[in-house]
Design a binder for these strands. Structure first.
Lengths: 185, 185, 185, 185
DNA sequence: CATGAATGAGCCTTCATTCAT
DNA sequence: AATGAATGAAGGCTCATTCAT
């Protein structure tokens, strides 16, 4: 049975995501991750120079950057983009582990500058890019609306209301955010 | 200069908020908190049975529960409540320490059931209570809108856009959230 | 039973000297030192910020600086100083632990700049000071002779010849070093 | 380009001397030696059963045994031997790496019996052999003088005085050691 | 011969917590 | 109330060594 290099590394990352999501980055001991990945503790440090490096790798993956990127790349515009992003969000964060991981990563912001940078990119560059595609020219209201949109998604993820399913939520959210701007015109 | 009991306890909590906001709950050593508060490490454990207890106390205070409560108690209705909450939010979280503390507390959710309970109360009970006051009967759209509102606030706090000040943001946000529902009627 | 602060610290240092002399600085685990001192491992780090700091403290004490200083302070001159130093040497390093410790410390020179500095002081400043007191004006031959003297002592310590006792050795060594210079005059 | 067996082994030893002299035997990781030698870590263990074995090989080479041997074999006598040894010493230890290596090896004495044996041979057998060749019959004074000689060399190596070059030092040292004994006759 | 992934023991260090004073 | 010395349990990380390829 041949394992390619990436295999073990990927297995460690998966294990780390599981363990980190359960214990948080700083209460999760490396040996638990190793155990979960079925490798020795030492091997974790063969693939990652330090726990910090592993944390950053996992934290990066927990952010929704690729979701936004892939929706932007699809060349969508208007509310279609929001729908795309909303759907991607829900897809990614329906996994409770991903959900709690996102929270831990957001808290990491203050501590790891690598994450700060990633968050800056997400919350400023990407968010503005989306705003333009959705509302045309950049207006204050448009940018506030986009924050309402992203915030709404985050809120849903944080604590899913029992009687509103993903689709319904996204549709309503898009409506709220879009229609207001439309009506104003 | 004699200090009464409450004084010292409060001083420790203040110090803890400062230190926790900087290092996160789990990377912040108790001795730093003691030093910041100007007391001995032992004394911290006289006022709080354990670090966990101190964490919970600080975490509780970092949530916006009292803001919502006080706005509800004022007997406001409609968009006035949202404005009140928005203003309270901005007031509380203009302090960067409070901001980062809120993130850390949210991440705590998975780990400390005391915080889970608090968050449940916030995200379900309180949020629904507000929804009713604002939109009258509880509708799906209303509840989604309220999440857009809270999420928007969170988003603003997470990373303040340079060219949108607090007042403007809140006003626009309330508009977006309210008008859509109004227009639909 | 009251123990003054220095007591524990001193006990740790003593234990460290014992353990270091046996295992060398880098193969000696701190927990062995703690055990030897009858304290917990953690306490070692209460008194010394790091193992490195403890090493430096012990290494400093293993050098013969105070011997030379005390002989210089006694106001002796000529061969009396050499005799004083020789006697002090023998007194200090008759303890095998001290002997091996000195070797370890000398090896440390390349690694810890604190020790390099100490050795510089010993091998340059002090050595020249002694040379002047012994041979009057500083001559090449005088300074070589002093190195022969110190080197001779070191050599004796390194491996004590079975049939030459301390006194005899020092006397002969002083003779060799002094007489030659005297005869030259 | 094919390299024969000895080549690689020697290259590893050379690398080890470099790395050991810089970090000391116990703080020098094998992987650094391998890197320095341009081979894989595994290969080091193909040529040396263990790090210990490599240490011993390097330590042996760092001692001045061959110098003394070769001077003895040349059939010299009297001060000529001392001059020969002095010259050899200076030749070997003008390299700072060799110098620091010698210190590390001397410290090894307490830990590795293989080195203890080597040092015994050096400090007792060889030293007495030289003493006889230089001073004729073995006298206390002669043996002390020889220690002054070797010690003086060591001292020079330990910290080279800026204004005394190798030749001058050796000549003076030989003088001091020899003349005294001569004058006594 | 040669590689480098994999292992596991062990070390330094931190830190929450206790307790005598 | 208050202090800070003392403890002990982990935790992150290094590194010699092995082994499949």
């Amino acid at each position: 049975m041949i394992k390619d290099k990436g295999d073990v590394r990927e297995r460690i990352i998966s294990a780390a995501m599981k363990v980190f999501s359960r214990y948080g980055f700083f209460k999760a001991p490396v040996h638990l991750i190793a155990k979960e990945a079925g490798v020795s503790k030492g091997l974790v440090f063969w693939y990652f120079r330090s726990k910090r490096e592993l944390i950053i790798e996992v934290a990066r993956r927990s952010l929704p950057l690729e979701i936004i990127d892939s929706c932007l790349e699809m060349g969508l515009n208007g509310e279609k983009i929001l729908e795309c992003i909303g759907k991607g969000y829900m897809e990614k964060y329906k996994d409770p582990a991903q959900r709690s991981l996102l929270l831990h990563t957001m808290a990491l912001e203050t501590l790891y500058e690598e994450i700060t940078r990633e968050m800056n990119c997400l919350c400023e560059e990407k968010l503005n890019e989306v705003a333009e595609k959705v509302f045309g020219k950049s207006t204050i209201k448009g940018r506030v609306a986009l924050r309402a949109f992203f915030g709404g998604l985050m809120c849903y993820i944080l604590r899913k209301p029992k009687d509103i399913d993903e689709n319904t939520f996204v549709k309503n959210l898009v409506d709220i955010v879009i229609n207001d701007v439309k009506n104003k015109r």
